[in-house]
Design a protein around this nucleic acid. Structure first.
Lengths: 337, 337
DNA sequence: TTGAAAGCGCTAACAA
DNA sequence: TTGTTAGCGCTTTCAA
């Protein structure tokens, strides 16, 4: 009973075969006699042998691991994407290594550098800022990367995103069709292209209906619940408040609803609210949130397929995949009274 | 310009030194002449050399990586612990590898097996179920493990937890001191010792005040928001509802508050609510939640210190660290009217 | 069907 | 201060 962790050669010695044969058995190669296989398996079980993935990765020149860097995994938005990645990865037999970024954008480069230091075959970056030298680090690492919903869409790397503009059109049009004319918007973080696209959709939808833009009806929400709360207060606590609000992320929509409550307003009785994302919480909260669905899990799937292709040396280096969005009608929108 | 990733020997060749010297420079060893160091650094920069961590780990017999497996990282409870782990890890110069478990308890063993296959020096398990063969996998892997808030506290491994019982006492006593006598409880997942401890504190606090246990005032909430909503409905939508509710997790408290709203009840006007955990959202939601604080980040810090000690071969194998809880008074509790 | 040799990229231990 | 040798645990290639 060795106290140290048993290695392949231990198993080989016990089974009375060569290391290569053990390797073949462990990896399920066909070219091993049944009797030998059984003997090896027995020996492996006896000592509790577990292959060392780091060593295997070194020898194979491929780790079968893909890394994911995300800003903050509490936000269900990111988590839904991770779920999609996980599912797809399971199918492709690879494993996932997660690494978080937190508030600090400077940590992002850090995480990328870490994961790409021989640990993974490819990386998926969720809503990356890719500031300063991040792109350079990525390039010199020679590790294939795929971006999901990057802050700036013009980044020269394979990207997958959703149709933010069309989604915003959908959201605002549904409000218009319910009779709303005075519609507010709670904007996202302006450093995100997605936030700007959603704003653009909002403006265009109103313009099509002949409604001029009114800057007093826009407030920043920064894609956070607290931001949504503040914006909701700013928009609603005034002489002539909007009858409906397009909150450009579900979490900020939740904040807006809190703000309405704090002001004694009923949702959707007094104000209608539409979100964006369709995170799980949107369906679970009360009242259930009407929102624009981003196919987050599908985005994760797609990202995995793209890195895998890249790792295998297939596919062009500058793909842009845009997935469709659609409206999910629940209980936070009512006809204008 | 090599298209392949440069390795240590490439740098050595270019700088005209041996591999060992490059290694020494990269690792900041003192025994290298200034001129040589500069030459090596220049060569490394020129080709964009990045050390391969997997190879280094193999050679050193130590990866300097700590793995974390958690059920679900969306729950802020888990995430707060991860934050603590991250901060402490940064101080100790190690890195973090995250791996999630999801709903499926069977995946937990899986994740443990994966991380302990030569990838990390130690693992931290957040609220692990440790069913079936997980303990065995852990044992045969020979990788040191520390449990944070395990489901069953009698697991024979180093553990970090919080004082759930004392926290529950605090919560209920504060309600009693405000004049409440008819107090309901929304229980957590009964498979967790922590849920049972909190329930026990609830019962004991009432008993001390001479109030007999009333089973009709208890409802299961399973530590989820949806569960809290259902339980809130069950407790509140009846002839003589409680005037206060102890929700044994913040997320279920949020669900209870939603339920109160759905019934047209005001919090804390009509019902007082106390949560447990003090996740960030407790302070951000409206009204801000009165709750029992678990020192989640500290629990993460402690866990890291414990694995590090274990990796270094210090410390006893069966420590149990219990961190204190305390009451955080915010705006969901009012005097009984 | 099995095994020997060589090497993945790096570092510990020692020698020069 | 620098370099040589050996080896981490595994797999590839090729020969037996």
């Amino acid at each position: 009973m060795p106290v140290a962790r048993p290695i392949l050669s231990d198993v080989a010695r016990i089974a009375g075969v060569s290391a290569m044969t053990v390797s073949n058995v462990i990896n399920g190669k066909a070219n091993v006699a049944e009797a030998t296989r059984a003997r090896v398996l027995a020996a492996a079980a006896e000592v509790g042998y577990v292959p060392n993935l780091a060593a295997r990765g070194l020898a194979r020149g491929r780790t079968n691991l893909v890394g994911v860097v995300s800003h903050d995994l509490t936000v269900q938005y990111a988590w839904s994407i991770v779920q999609g990645i996980t599912n797809e990865l399971a199918d492709s037999g690879a494993e996932l290594l997660l690494s978080a970024t937190y508030q600090d954008a400077s940590r992002e480069v850090d995480r990328i550098r870490f994961l790409t230091s021989g640990l993974v075959d490819g990386v998926i970056l969720i809503a990356p800022a890719l500031e300063t030298d991040a792109l350079e680090v990525l390039a010199t690492s020679r590790v294939p990367a795929v971006l999901v919903d990057p802050r700036r869409l013009d980044t020269p790397l394979p990207r997958v995103t959703a149709d933010h503009y069309a989604g915003a059109l959908l959201a605002v049009e549904s409000l218009l069709s319910r009779g709303h004319r005075r519609i507010g918007i709670v904007d996202g973080d302006p450093s995100f292209d997605s936030a700007r696209e959603r704003h653009r959709g909002f403006v265009d939808a109103l313009a099509r209906a002949g409604i001029p833009a009114d800057d007093t009806l826009a407030a920043p929400g920064y894609f956070t619940q607290a931001g949504g709360f503040e914006a909701g207060l700013a928009l609603l606590d005034r002489p002539s408040p909007p009858t409906a609000i397009f909150a450009t992320a579900d979490v900020t929509a939740l904040g807006v609803i809190d703000a309405a409550r704090a002001l004694g307003l009923d949702v959707p009785g007094d104000v209608s609210v539409v979100g964006f994302d369709d995170i799980p919480q949107a369906a679970q909260s009360y009242p259930a949130l009407t929102t624009v669905r981003q196919p987050l899990e599908e985005m994760g799937h797609m990202a995995v397929r793209m890195v895998n292709a890249l790792v295998d040396g297939t596919r062009d280096e500058s793909d842009l995949v845009v997935l469709p969005t659609n409206l999910v009608e629940r209980n936070t929108v009512a006809d204008r009274t």
